[in-house]
Amino acid sequence: MSWINKPRDPHFDQVLQTDRFELRPLTLWRTWRLGVAKWLDDPELANAITAAPLRGSQWRLYRLMSKPNGRTRFTYGIFPRGSDQPIGVESVQLRNYRTASLAVLIHDREWWGKGVVSEVRGRVIDHLFDSPRVGRIQGQVEGRNFASIFNYRNLGFAHVGTLHQCTWNTAEDVPADQLMFEMMEDDWRNRSEA
């Protein structure tokens, strides 16, 4: 609970706009009201996020994905323009040494394969690097989560390492690898200018 003595950061309370979506910062109460935790009852979604044991996973994943505190954890609801129903959430956690990590969940299958993550995450990354608190963004992906691997590669993240058999895929009951990705601020700005 070290975050509780920190002031709220207004930079992360801003609504972000993309071509197709509005990214609204959500409070913990709002994420609960929207039923985000229940999205994780979908085993396909849950297993895509983490191959860790599913026992108690709903609450574990809820903590991972959607426990915004306005200081170090932020969750943006992804609302199609003109809609009040989110199709997913993008979560950000600020860590030590100007590092942020990302996690995304698109629960509405109608939007799968339509470039939502690239569009949303690109805007969120722009916003993160506009803050002096972020100079590096990292992502950790289960080795068989092809869609998420694609999204990091498509955005230009570098694959900086693999943690072999570091967790367990309960869907297949086999050990699972985790891939580590990172993006540095200078690399992102150079890529945006190119």
Binding site: W112, G113, G115, G143, F146, A147, S148, I149, F150, H164
Partner: peptide, 22 residues
């Protein structure tokens, strides 16, 4: 896109008859 990428990876694995490494 992401779904296309998934189909490509699975097709390569089917062609090779084994799983790809990360």
């Amino acid at each position: 896109d992401s779904l296309g990428h998934m189909h490509i990876v699975l097709a390569i694995e089917a062609q090779r008859g084994e799983r790809l490494t990360p």
